[in-house]
C-alpha cells in the first residue's frame, strides 16, 4: 500500500476535528475524498502532508503509513524533505496558490532545484518539458510569464506541474477543479487521471463533485463531520450505497446541490465542530432512518460487501425495509 491511514484523529486546540479516519491508496489508484463543506477534507490533506502543525493542529491518534514509513510523528525537517519530493500537495484554489511576484518558471523550477538538486538551467529545461507534457502551448514563454497573465486553468496546470517536478509518488489534490469553468475542469480531471496511469502514482482527490468521482476514482471515502461514513470501491458505492449520507450525495451529482447547506433531500447542515458529539451518529439529526440507538451510540465501521460502513441501519440490508430509503 502506498499510503495507509488508520484511525487518524486530529485536534486544533481543544476541538477534535477528525475522529478515527481510515483509508488507503495504492500506486495506480485514485482515491476520492468526498463530503460536504466543513467535513474535514482539507484538514485530512494537511494532516497527511504534515502541514496541519502550521495551523496549530495536532495529531492525537492513529497512524499514517507512507510506503512503509510512519509519518504521524515524523519531525518537521524530515517531513519537509518528503513534501514536494515524494508527496505533492495541490492546495485548494489555484487562483491564489501562486506567488504573484515570481515568474511561473521560477516557481516550478524551485521544486526540482530544491529536491533534485538541478542547476538553474537544467531546472528550467525540466520545467518547460513538464509544462509541455501538460499541454501548455508555448511552454517556454509561459515560464517567463507571471501568474496574473494566465487563466485559471493554466494556473492549475502550473500547480500540477510543480507536483510533477520532483516525480512525486503520491499527489494529494484539494478540489483542483472547483474554481474553474466546466470545460477546463474536464481537462484537468483528464490530466490527473492520465498521470496516475502513466506514472503509476497514487492520487488522493478531494472533491465536491460526485461526477468527477464517478469518472476517475477507483475508491471513495465519504467523510461526514470529521468521521468516515462509508468507504469502498467506486462501483459498489454508486450501485448500492449503504450509508444514507452516501446515498444522498449520489442523488446529488449535479454540482449545485453540493453547495454548503443545500444537500438535496436532506434537510439541515453539517454540525459545527463544536457540537460534534462523541457517542452518537453525527448524521442522526438529518437522517430519515435515525432511531434512539443512532442518538446514543456511535456506529462503528463494519464490512458491507467490499465497503466499510459506519451506520446502525445501512440501506439495502434486511435490518430496514427499502421503503424507508431517502
Amino acid at each position: 500500500m502506498l499510503m495507509e491511514v488508520k484511525e487518524l484523529s486530529l485536534s486544533i486546540g481543544k476541538v477534535a476535528l477528525l475522529d478515527r479516519v481510515s483509508f488507503s491508496v495504492d500506486r495506480g489508484q485514485v482515491l476520492g475524498l468526498v463530503g460536504e463543506s466543513g467535513s474535514g477534507k482539507s484538514l485530512t490533506a494537511l494532516a497527511l502532508t504534515g502541514l496541519v502543525r502550521r495551523i496549530g493542529g495536532r495529531i492525537t491518534g492513529g497512524s499514517i503509513a507512507f510506503d512503509g514509513q510512519e509519518l504521524s510523528d515524523l519531525p518537521e525537517p524530515a517531513y519537509r524533505k518528503l513534501r514536494g519530493k515524494r508527496i505533492a500537495f495541490i492546495t485548494q484554489n489555484p487562483m491564489s496558490a501562486l506567488d504573484a511576484l515570481k515568474t511561473i518558471g521560477d516557481q516550478v523550477d524551485q521544486v526540482s532545484r530544491l529536491h533534485l538538486g538541478l542547476s538553474r538551467k537544467a531546472a528550467r529545461a525540466h520545467t518547460v518539458d513538464i509544462l509541455t507534457r501538460l499541454r501548455i502551448p508555448e511552454a517556454a514563454t509561459v515560464a517567463r510569464a507571471y501568474p496574473h497573465q494566465l487563466s485559471g486553468g493554466m494556473k492549475q496546470r502550473v500547480v500540477i506541474a510543480m507536483a510533477l517536478a520532483a516525480d512525486a509518488d503520491l499527489i494529494i489534490a484539494d478540489e483542483p477543479t472547483t474554481a474553474l469553468d466546466v470545460t477546463v475542469q474536464a481537462q484537468i480531471v483528464m490530466i490527473l487521471s492520465e498521470l496516475v496511469r502513466k506514472r503509476n502514482i497514487g492520487l488522493i482527490l478531494i472533491t465536491h463533485d460526485m461526477g468527477v468521482v464517478a469518472q476517475i476514482c477507483d475508491k471513495v471515502c465519504v467523510l461526514y463531520a470529521g468521521r468516515v461514513a462509508e468507504s469502498g470501491p467506486v462501483g459498489q458505492l454508486f450501485d448500492t450505497p449503504r450509508h444514507p449520507y452516501s446515498a444522498a450525495l449520489i442523488g446529488c451529482i449535479p454540482r449545485e446541490c453540493m453547495a454548503p447547506g443545500a444537500l438535496k433531500g436532506i434537510p439541515g447542515t453539517v454540525p459545527s465542530a463544536l457540537n460534534y458529539g462523541a457517542e452518537c451518529c453525527r448524521f442522526a439529526s438529518r437522517c430519515a432512518r435515525a432511531d434512539a440507538l443512532c442518538h446514543t451510540t456511535r456506529p462503528l465501521p463494519h464490512s458491507q460487501g467490499a465497503a466499510l460502513v459506519a451506520c446502525h441501519h445501512p440501506q439495502g440490508t434486511a435490518a430496514q425495509p427499502e421503503a424507508l430509503d431517502v
Partner: peptide
C-alpha cells in the same frame, strides 16, 4: 496568511 504561502510549504521550501 495568503494562500501561496501554504503551497510553498507544501513544496517543501524551508
Amino acid at each position: 496568511g495568503r494562500d501561496f504561502v501554504m503551497l510553498l510549504h507544501a513544496k517543501g521550501v524551508h
